[in-house]
Amino acid sequence: MFDFKLTPSLQETQQETEKTRGRVYDLIVLGGGPAGLTAAIYAGRARVDTLVLAGSLPGGQPANTDVVDNFPGFPEGLEGPELVRRFQSQAERFGCQIELEEVVEVDFFSRPFTVRTHRATYQALAVIVATGASPRRLGVPGEDKFFGRGVSACATCDGFFYRDKRVAVVGGGDSAVIEALFLTRFAREVVIIHRRDELRATQIYQEQAFANPKIRVAWDTVVEEVLGDQTVSGVRVRNVKTGEMETIEVDGVFIYVGMDPKTELFAGQLDLDEWGYIVSDHRQRTNVPGVFAAGDVQDPLYRQVVVAAGTGAVAAMEVEKFLGEYPKSRIDKDVSTACCETEL
């Protein structure tokens, strides 16, 4: 009944030392999920001097995933944390330095590029942005006020606190339905609030949900406000077809309405599309020569571990090429103009 997980966060972080101060890395990888760690594996193996800034929650989304069932080579599936732990030890085997630091600022205007964390400032000739995506919020009144106190984005974390209570799950995709099913272990009633008239989730999960007597679905419905005084007492919802407003009484709200790319730090420096994803070409290049993007941060469509890993590998191979063409001695004067002429 007990399991014991060793997540990648066990890696020891290092203080700013003489070694890192004033040092210019070949490559800094921002992000410690499948894309970032695969980039690190490829770069490290190609003897590119690489620093990975993995953030305080390393491992990316698989670190929060029970089982990854579709990563090739693991016919039985594998626990998400274990999968990324293996990614990480592979990157370390090739000599990559991995720090659990959260990036607070980047400067891609001047070279070498500068990346600041709340611990230290680092510089590199090339950067791979693989910061991934984070759960989208609803953006309605009451949501922020109650986040962590009745509004949650993690059913496996917080389900326990809703024993014999009523909860709402907002969303209609796989995550929403899987977590609604999970919550029936604790809650006495689970209301899935979905803006359309059919679920987007895989058929097998839909069937399980419809067969579960604790689950009901509020169709064509969106949340307008999370209600409550000290604790959550309900949600005010609107039927998108009839316009009718209604209050659903619940003690907790779990939000699974998709993901947003983590790109706030790059606005104004990298080209973003209208949804905030980094615009990259098929060689994972961004609009700034020497800055590449990989994984979910530039992928609104697939968001799979294997795809993220693939784009990470491409980005690292492109970095190698970039560094070959523009070695340290030339990078300041030549790169800004010259490499923009290479065809996309």
């Binding site: 997540t7 929650l57 670190a63 929060n64 944390p81 993690c154 496996t156 974390c157 917080d158």
Partner: peptide, 10 residues
Amino acid sequence: VTPTCPYCPP
């Protein structure tokens, strides 16, 4: 914390 919470160890 709960043991099933990946955000808790940090």
